[in-house]
Each structure stands twice: as structure tokens, then as C-alpha cells.
Nucleic acid binder design. Structure first.
Lengths: 206, 206
DNA sequence: GTCTATAAGAAGATAGAC
DNA sequence: GTCTATCTTCTTATAGAC
């Protein structure tokens, strides 16, 4: 990886652990293996590093959204998957989302950084809400909505059903971010949650 | 209010908005109406102000826990209330918790400060988890457990039922902390959530 | 307890050689 | 692009008068 990218990578790690204000330019440089003044050949100042991290995330997100839209448009394939969604499929959907968001290195660091910096300005708050509130609700609402349309889940309010599916996942995610030692217990709770969700919104046929 | 207390109050406000590292001692002093050096007659250093805020919160919490235990011990009175818990009682329970945590000035500022500082050290992470995860789950689990025992809510897993009640409340709370303009919509969602919760865990008799 | 003056040090950023 | 040396500014904290 080239120096410019490595600076972003190390900066993100440090920002996610200590917050922007507690990270010194020299600290980032040291981890990259250069001296602080050299860093200024790559970025104009400390803030430019932070902004570049946000930009990179926006790019990654756009790509991901594009990829999801492609699948989303391929409604035939998607609905086939979810038409015969068993409890195991539902468990997989929840676990995959949870473990991807929890363990994916980039996601984890970016989420923790946003958690720390979310009250600094509205742009950061909006990014947080988009990534960890609105987008997951939209995506999962779409999937659960398809299952409900096929009659396998029963509800007259898909939005609230999606809230009931996602809020516990979000809640467990924030617990594990704060204290990774709670992860095994959280995974058990996650499975119990989804099984109970499946029972509550019980399928009409199986 | 005496100067010593006013320092804590203004510091908490600033810490909750910008985070500890972005607040300068002179800034706190200015809001109190004194100069920075005068502040050092009240607190040894900047860190001592932060620690005093944590201490004060611990005191307030202990008092609150004590008050709750008194009611908690008075099981006769409590269970009477929840034996005939209607949907309206359930809505009230959720709304009261939500609005108290959301609007109580001290709570709001302290929660935002902890949100920002939670990854700085384990003690702060533990306080956050205790106040906004474990304690609400324990308290609400106790109340919902009493209702379930009386047969008005049906479940074989009180812990998951409590998760299904509380996780959406927590989720909506963090959204409103980030963006107060979402509050009206969140309150609507809260009511819909509780009504749906009530239907899902449907009472056997009414 | 509050002030002014100031010390002490940290951290961001630049200059200029290589 | 990286380095050493250095500047500048900001911030915490102290000294000592009132």
C-alpha cells in the first residue's frame, strides 16, 4: 500500500480509538514509519486527513449501494430466495448483518470514529444516521417486506416489523463495540431474538 | 448555585457538546464568569473537573437506585399497578422512560458526554453500559416480568421480551440525541412500537 | 477567591537541505 | 518524499498581588 493510503489507514485506527482531538499528527506519522513533516507532503493538514477518510467512506458506500441496487433490481432472483425463507434463512440474515458490521475492520473503525465525532457537526451526525439507522432499515425493510408479501410473515405494518427486527441488532452491536467481551453472550441473544421474532410474526404456512 | 457547582454544570454542558479534549479550561471559566486561573482554586486541574462530574453522577444514580429499591421492595403496590396493566399503561411506561431520558437536562448531557468518551477507558464504557443498557433492562424486565406472571403478557422468555420492548426505545433515543428534529416522528414510532408489542405478546385476557 | 502576568510545554505546521 | 531544525500558536497551570 502506498504512503498516502497508509496514512489514512493508520489515522482511521487512531481516530476510532481516541477521537480526532486526541490523536497527534506525529503519532500517525510514526505508525506509518515517517516523520511528521513528511506527512504534510501527502495532506495539507490534519483536518485534510480526516476529510479524506470521510470521502473514502462515501466512495466505498456508493459502490456498495450500486452493488445492492443491482441485486435489488434483480427482483426475480431475490424474491425467489425470500419466498421460501425458513427460520434458518432469517437467522442467517440477522447474523450476517451483525457479524459483518461488527467485525469488518474498516466498518468497525469507521463506526467507532463516527460514534465519537457524531456531535461535532451535523454532517457527521447525518452520515452516522444514514449508515447505521436509515440504510439498514431501508434494506432490511425491503427484504422483510418481500417475505411478508409472500405471506410468510404476517404484519400490517412493515416499518414497525423491521424496527422489531433491526433495533435489537443495533442495540447488541453498540454493546459489543463498547465491550468485546460481551460478544459471545450477544450472539446467543441475537439468535434468541430472531427465533422469537419469527414466532411473533409467525408464518402462515411453512 | 455556588461557583464550584456552576463549574461542573458548565463543564458538563461543554463536554457533552464538544468532548473533553475540545473544551478549554478558559472556556469553562468564561461561562462561569471568572478567569481560568480562578478555576484552579476550585479544582486541581481539568481532569479533576471531569472526575467530579462522574462522581456526582454516581451519587445521583445511587440515590435513584435507592428510591427505586424502596418501590421495588413494595411489591404489593407495584404488582397491583401492573396486574391490571392496560395498553395505555404500557404506552405510559415506554413514553415516560423515553421522554425522561431524552429531555432531562442532566441525563441528556451526561449521556452525550459518555457517548463521546466511552472508548477512552473501560470505566466510562462500563458506566455507559450500566446506565443505558443493563439497568434499564433489569428494571423494565422486572416490571414486564410481573405483568407476564399475572398472565397479561404471554412469553416463555422474559429477557427477550424485555429486549423487544427496550431495544427500539434505545434505538430511537440515540437517533434523537443525534438529530432532535427527528423527535416528533420518533414519538409516533414509539407509540406504534408499543402498540405492536402489546399485540405481539398479546394478553390472554383483558 | 479573583485577578494579571507569565511560565512551561505541547502540537500543528513550515523552511530548506538532501 | 523524507529528513532536521524551527516557528507559532494554543493551552494548561502557577506565582503572587489584591
Amino acid at each position: 500500500m502506498d504512503t498516502k493510503k497508509r496514512i489514512l489507514d493508520e489515522a482511521l485506527t487512531l481516530f476510532s480509538e481516541k477521537g480526532y482531538a486526541n490523536v497527534f499528527v506525529g503519532e500517525i506519522a510514526e505508525r506509518v514509519g515517517i516523520k511528521a513533516p513528511s506527512l504534510y507532503k501527502h495532506y495539507k493538514n490534519k483536518r485534510a486527513i480526516f476529510d479524506a477518510i470521510i470521502d473514502e467512506m462515501n466512495q466505498r458506500f456508493e459502490e456498495q449501494a450500486k452493488a445492492m441496487n443491482i441485486n435489488g433490481t434483480d427482483a426475480a432472483a431475490d424474491s425467489k430466495i425470500y419466498m421460501d425463507m425458513s427460520e434458518e434463512h432469517l437467522l442467517k440474515l440477522g447474523r450476517e448483518f451483525f457479524l459483518y458490521y461488527l467485525h469488518d475492520d474498516y466498518n468497525k473503525r469507521f463506526r467507532k470514529m463516527l460514534t465519537i465525532e457524531q456531535f461535532q457537526d451535523k454532517e457527521l451526525a447525518d452520515i452516522y444516521t444514514k449508515l447505521y439507522v436509515d440504510d439498514p432499515m431501508t434494506y432490511q425493510g425491503m427484504l422483510l417486506g418481500m417475505v411478508a408479501a409472500s405471506g410468510l410473515l404476517k404484519t400490517d405494518n412493515v416499518a414497525i416489523m423491521t424496527l422489531h427486527f433491526y433495533a435489537p441488532i443495533y442495540y447488541l452491536l453498540t454493546i459489543c463495540d463498547r465491550d468485546p467481551s460481551r460478544e459471545p453472550k450477544a450472539l446467543e441473544t441475537l439468535d434468541e431474538h430472531i427465533k422469537q421474532f419469527n414466532r411473533l410474526y409467525g408464518r402462515t404456512n411453512k
